[in-house]
């Protein structure tokens, strides 16, 4: 059940502080050790809680939700 369209990280602005990586509860964001930048490695697991954005000091990370967010359908 994918809940986001995409995760955009502006590599120009990213200072590689890893705060976003540390604030993600579900291991969506990883750190590229060669480029020293954050990457949206596993967007399939993203819940668009936006806590990573809240932690980014450069405001260079954006999560684009999929709307309507898939809700597990209980009524048959």
């Amino acid at each position: 059940m994918e809940r986001v369209e995409r995760i955009i990280i502006d590599e120009e602005k990213c200072i590689g502080c890893r705060l976003c990586v540390k604030s993600c509860p579900v291991d969506v964001l990883r750190f590229d050790e060669t480029k020293k930048k954050a990457v949206g490695a596993y967007p399939q697991e993203c819940e668009w809680c936006l806590i990573c954005e809240e932690h980014c000091p450069k405001d260079c990370l954006r999560v684009q939700p999929k709307i309507p967010t898939p809700v597990f359908e209980f009524i048959r």
């Binding site: 936006l50 954005e53 809240e54 809700v71 597990f72």
Partner: peptide, 24 residues
């Protein structure tokens, strides 16, 4: 505020009468 703004931007927000479902 960030969540609300994203909702508004992407789909115009919940409005006054959002549809209700169950969630497990």
């Amino acid at each position: 505020t960030r969540l609300e703004e994203r909702e508004k931007e992407v789909f115009g927000g919940l409005g006054d009468k959002p549809e209700a479902k169950f969630a497990l």
